[in-house]
Simulated scan of single mutants.
Amino acid sequence: MSTFKPLSTIFLIAAITLMIAMVLPGTAQENLMQGNDVPQEITDGDLDNAAEAYAQMQVIHAEFQESVQQTEDNEARQQLQNQANEQLIKAIQETGLDADTFNHIMAQVQANDELRETFIEKVQNIQ
């Protein structure tokens, strides 16, 4: 396996995490930063759910990028962004996670090399 795939996965993880963070209401973002109501320990099941959500989010992100490139109207682009945001949140919720927990997991994945490797393996097994 080349190092390109894991590196591109890391960058996509960061991009999707950023997209979700922009969708969260202000209080949810504050709770995330303060760690309120977000489990500190990440279970293997939570990591599986986050990987499943992430894999689905990759599909949503790719579809969004393709749609945005095909339109030049700013209002239509904003509508596409709103639809993509709703789909991203739904993808997370369908795994049993909420956006705060997902973002917490993703922050830990980015900060911890061992956890990141495990996460990438889980995502690759889904794809």
Rank of each mutant, 00 (worst) to 15 (best):
M1T: 05
M1F: 08
M1L: 08
M1W: 07
T3W: 02
F4G: 01
K5C: 02
K5E: 06
P6A: 00
P6Y: 00
L7P: 03
T9P: 00
I10L: 15
F11G: 09
F11L: 14
L12V: 03
L12H: 05
I13E: 03
A14Y: 09
I16R: 03
T17K: 08
T17A: 11
L18W: 08
L18C: 07
M19T: 08
I20K: 02
I20V: 13
A21E: 05
A21Y: 11
A21Q: 06
M22E: 14
P25T: 00
G26N: 10
T27W: 14
A28T: 08
Q29N: 06
Q29T: 05
Q29F: 12
E30K: 13
E30Y: 10
N31H: 10
N31E: 11
L32Q: 00
L32S: 00
L32A: 01
M33H: 01
Q34I: 08
N36R: 13
D37C: 04
V38I: 15
V38L: 06
P39K: 04
P39N: 04
Q40V: 13
I42Q: 05
D44C: 03
D44Y: 13
G45M: 14
D46S: 03
L47C: 06
D48H: 12
D48E: 15
A50M: 08
A51F: 07
E52H: 08
E52G: 01
A53E: 02
Y54H: 14
A55L: 05
A55F: 13
A55N: 11
Q58I: 09
V59R: 07
I60D: 09
I60A: 01
A62D: 11
E63H: 06
E63T: 11
F64E: 13
Q65N: 13
Q65E: 11
Q65T: 14
E66A: 12
E66W: 00
S67V: 00
V68G: 03
V68K: 07
Q69W: 04
Q70W: 11
T71Q: 09
A76T: 15
R77E: 12
R77A: 10
Q78Y: 02
Q78R: 11
Q79W: 01
Q79R: 11
L80V: 06
Q81R: 12
Q81C: 01
E86V: 08
Q87M: 14
Q87G: 06
L88E: 08
K90T: 15
K90M: 15
K90Y: 14
A91G: 12
E94K: 04
G96Y: 09
G96H: 08
L97P: 05
A99K: 02
A99T: 04
A99S: 12
D100V: 00
D100H: 00
D100F: 00
T101C: 03
F102K: 05
M106E: 02
A107W: 12
Q108D: 08
A111P: 07
D113F: 14
D113L: 15
E114D: 13
L115S: 05
L115F: 13
R116F: 07
E117D: 12
E117G: 12
F119K: 03
I120Y: 09
I120A: 06
K122I: 04
K122H: 06
V123C: 06
V123L: 03
Q124F: 09
N125M: 02
I126G: 02
Q127E: 07
Q127P: 00
Q127G: 01
Q127W: 11
Q127S: 07
